[in-house]
């Protein structure tokens, strides 16, 4: 009646469908509404400076917030925050707290040479801000001319549906107005840990298992975003990759786009996902603590 191959194929599809139905049973999460009364743009005279300013102004307009511009160095626009380079990140944090900024946009130049050297640091300022910032920060990596087109779509990078991921989703939802993609892929450290664990198990973990598990973890967040999308005539899609995040971000077909990522692993430590996102994305990256 039906060959073994047909039956196996049907059983694989049933497996996939069971998985889909089970996903619809997961705990629901809420995407919080986010708001910032003030947006801070930090300029440093680099090639990214114009993008930082234009992006901060566009976002401030979208949020109905006030946009203020400060200079990071003597070469930038306006008076520099400090001449002491070592103090700079702490001056920024104090300024954010003192003036009650809800969002910061700053340049964190994308340096291919650093990547090829395998450098872990993004620079002193970016490293400290990633670890300590109490408010979301957008790291502008490469100059972008069309800010309007940039904010048309967004990519949320996450591996779970935790509170930080939901906040990051809330920001992405608020700042963009077109299609939203939820990109699920692990940082290299997590990826290797899972594979290592899989090798020692009797039933080894496959790449497909990883992709599926990641999709499961994120599915409540995806469902919550899709519920928002239905009311707003927007599209939200999820893509789970059983690969390292950096491999996905380095793909030729991965566009230069606006990305958001949950930021912390612990109160003082930057999550590896946030670090890798900022390192390998060419578009602006919103890191949400």
């Amino acid at each position: 009646m039906s060959s073994r191959r047909d039956i196996d194929h049907a059983l694989d599809e049933i497996d996939e469908n069971i998985h889909l139905f089970e996903r619809t049973l997961r705990t629901r999460v809420e995407i919080p509404e986010v708001q910032a009364a003030r947006v801070l743009a930090l300029l440093d005279g680099s090639n990214q400076q114009d993008t930082v300013r234009a992006l901060a102004e566009s976002i401030a307009a979208r949020l109905g917030a006030e946009c203020r511009i400060h200079s990071l160095s003597a070469g930038g626009e306006g008076a520099p925050l400090t001449d002491d380079r070592d103090r700079l990140p702490f001056e920024i944090l104090e300024l954010v707290e003192r003036e009650d900024f809800g969002l910061v946009v700053l340049p964190t130049p994308f340096l291919e040479d650093y990547l090829s050297l395998g450098a872990a640091s993004l620079g002193v300022v970016a490293d400290v801000l990633l670890a300590r910032s109490p408010v979301p920060m957008i790291h502008v990596r490469e100059p972008i001319e069309d800010i309007g087109a940039l904010l048309e779509r967004g990519v949320l990078i996450t591996v779970d549906a935790g509170a930080e991921a939901c906040r990051a989703a809330g920001w992405m939802w608020r700042l963009t107005e077109g299609p939203l993609q939820v990109l699920v892929a692990m940082s290299s450290a997590e990826h290797h840990a899972v594979l290592e664990f899989g090798r020692t198990a009797a039933d080894p973990v496959t790449e497909e298992d990883i992709g599926r598990r990641l999709g499961d973890e994120v599915s409540p967040l995806l469902a919550a975003l899709q519920a928002l999308a239905r009311g707003a005539d927007r599209v939200v899609e999820g893509h789970a990759y059983p690969e390292e995040l950096r491999e996905v971000l380095r793909r030729e077909d991965f566009p230069v786009c606006f990305c958001a990522v949950p930021g912390r692993e612990s109160p003082d430590q930057t999550g590896p996902l946030a670090r890798e996102s900022v390192r390998y994305c060419r578009g602006p990256v919103l890191v949400v603590p």
Binding site: L20, T24, L222, A223, Q226, A227, R230, V235, E237
Partner: peptide, 12 residues
């Protein structure tokens, strides 16, 4: 607890 909308990625 089933969410029938959970598998609809694009309502259009």
């Amino acid at each position: 607890d089933f969410d029938e909308w959970a598998l609809v990625s694009d309502v259009r």
